[in-house]
Design a protein around this nucleic acid. Structure first.
Lengths: 166, 166
DNA sequence: AGACTAACCGGAGTGGCACCCCGTTTGTCA
DNA sequence: TGACAAACGGGGTGCCACTCCGGTTAGTCT
């Protein structure tokens, strides 16, 4: 990779992080390119489509999220994922779209980290068998997506994990 | 309302129903107008924005959904809502957007019908206090949204209602 | 250092979108 | 039947994602 290419890549990524934080995952790619000081063609050469760019934007943060898994219980980690998804506007939608279209690095990281916690919780009898980590992550994604960036996410997640029975 | 206006209104609505069924709630409004044989300006005069059109498209179906509430338990009715949301692509997203921006007729109907069922379930001790119908509907919307039109919706809803404990 | 070349760049273009303006047509009702 | 308000839609605006291609540049090899 040539040095100018790398420099532009990083400028675009930085602009994208800022713009996504400000306006969500449906931010204008043209504006990101403009903010980065490159032509839109350059943006599209580095990131074939919106999805690819979003993957890159979220990758680092997802990585740290997965690194935290060792220090948390399944429930607390799922809460962290929910909170992250709710604050990082559009992560959920982005991951969802990724799951639908192509295998995403982010998703694999999340299922790996969460899968370990889930197995642990199942062995200690806190979670019943037949629950898959993908189910739980889909649920978290769903809730993040539905509550946008509101504070409802955690409450709804707890509700879903606890069930509605007394 | 003039007769031509009414005729165009209905043509647009019919085209919208077909198009939404085919491609989801993010269907092209221009294409709907084209299919209806009217100019795009006419579509926008009758329906100020995408949200208004979607409301109209879903209104009838939501009405029948609410009418069924009397014959079903809370759980079964929520399943019906989930199934409906999953098959009618984009209903969930649409209702969500509605909830965020303006009070929607559809949403009020759903909270009324579901609220009655929930009170009933709480009085008979099947559902604990502190659970609100809006929580449950948000959850259902979330799941419909996340599972797109897949068959996962019901399974995830049951999971959420039951909780993860053994 | 100089020259070569493949990689890279971005302005300009394409086709599509939602939504609006305004001159024209049409239904209605006296 | 004539007048007029109501409704129509072609065409326009500004935005978007994404692509093409002629010019530029960074790295390499002598």
């Amino acid at each position: 990779m040539r040095s100018d290419a790398r420099r532009n890549y990083e400028r675009i990524l930085a602009a994208a992080v800022a713009e996504v934080a400000a306006t969500g995952a449906d931010a204008s790619l043209e504006k990101i390119a403009r903010d980065a000081g490159v032509g839109s063609a350059t943006l599209h050469r580095h990131f074939a489509n919106r999805q690819a760019l979003m993957e890159a934007v979220f990758h680092d943060r997802v990585e740290t999220l997965c690194a935290q898994a060792g220090d948390l219980t399944l429930t607390d980690w799922l809460r962290a994922v929910a909170e992250f998804g709710a604050t990082t506007r559009g992560l959920a939608a982005s991951l969802l779209a990724a799951g639908a279209t192509a295998d995403s690095g982010c998703e694999a990281m999340l299922t790996d980290a969460g899968g370990a916690l889930l197995r642990q919780a199942q062995q200690s009898g806190e979670v019943r068998a037949g629950v898959a980590i993908t189910d739980l992550l889909t649920l978290v994604n769903a809730i993040s997506l539905a509550t946008q960036d509101g504070p409802e996410a955690i409450r709804l997640l707890d509700l879903a994990l606890k069930g509605v029975a007394p």
